[in-house]
Design a protein around this nucleic acid. Structure first.
Length: 195
DNA sequence: CAGAAGATCATCT
DNA sequence: GATGATCTTCTGT
C-alpha cells in the first residue's frame, strides 16, 4: 500500500509549504487491534535555515531522517520525558520536517484516553508531547520509518470516520526562533508576530 | 568526558 | 507567569 498522489505531492514540498496543507489530514495508527485516528489541527515547519531546527547545524545521527525524502517519520525525545512526532517533507538531502503540534481525536478515543490517563477530550492531543502519547509512542523506534499502515499512516480525508468537534485552534508556526518573527496562519491568512 | 540546552507538560501562585 | 521533572543529544575540551 502507498500514499495517494495528493499526499505524495504535499510531502514532496518544502516544510513551510507542506505545513499548512497537512491541516485536516488524518493520522492513523493500529495498536493492540485498535485503530487510533486524529485530525491534524496544528503544525509547525522546521528547515535548515531556522536556528531553532534540529537540522540547523547539519546532519547528525538523530536527525538523519529529516534529510530523507518526504514521507517518513522523524520522532525525537526531549525534556527527559516527551516524544514529538514529525512528518518529513521535501527532497532527499534537505533537512526539513513538519512537527505535528496538535490533533483532534477522531476514533479509538477510549484507547487514547487510556494511553494518556486522561478523560478530557480537549487534553488528549492538544500539544506535541500529548499527541505522541495518545498515539502510543514510547520510544524513537519509528523515527526514520516510512509512513504506512504498518507504522503511522497519513490519510487525505476520512469521510467514513465519524465527525467530531474542533478542540484546538489551527496554528501553523514557522518556529519561534530567537530574533526571528513568529509566523503563523489562521484560516489561510498569514500573521507575523515579534514574540 | 563533562556540561548545557532542549520543537514540553503539569502544577502551582 | 514561574517552576520542577527527567535524560538524550550535541558540543567542546
Amino acid at each position: 500500500l502507498k500514499l495517494d498522489n495528493y499526499l505524495t505531492s504535499i510531502l514532496a514540498q518544502p516544510a513551510i509549504e507542506a505545513a499548512p496543507q497537512l491541516l485536516g489530514c488524518i493520522l492513523q495508527r493500529k495498536i493492540n487491534g485498535q485503530t487510533i485516528s486524529l485530525k491534524i489541527v496544528e503544525t509547525e515547519a522546521y528547515h535548515q535555515d531556522d536556528p531553532a531546527s534540529h537540522t540547523y547545524r547539519g546532519l547528525t545521527k538523530r536527525t538523519a531522517p529529516m534529510f530523507e525524502a518526504g514521507g517518513r517519520l522523524y520522532i525525537y525525545f526531549t525534556y527527559g520525558m516527551h516524544y514529538c512526532v514529525n512528518i518529513v517533507t521535501g527532497s532527499k538531502g534537505t533537512g526539513e520536517a513538519v512537527l505535528i503540534r496538535a490533533a483532534e481525536p477522531v476514533s479509538g478515543i477510549a484507547t487514547m484516553k487510556a494511553l494518556r490517563d486522561q478523560n478530557d477530550l480537549r487534553k488528549l492531543a492538544n500539544g506535541p508531547g500529548k499527541l505522541a502519547q495518545a498515539l502510543g509512542i514510547t520510544d524513537t523506534k519509528l523515527s526514520g520509518e516510512r509512513l504506512s499502515p504498518y507504522t503511522i499512516n497519513l490519510l487525505k480525508t476520512a469521510a467514513q470516520i465519524e465527525q467530531s468537534s474542533i478542540i484546538s485552534r489551527p496554528r501553523i508556526g514557522i518556529s519561534r526562533a530567537k530574533d526571528l518573527p513568529y509566523r503563523f496562519y489562521i484560516s489561510g491568512n498569514e500573521f507575523v508576530s515579534k514574540l
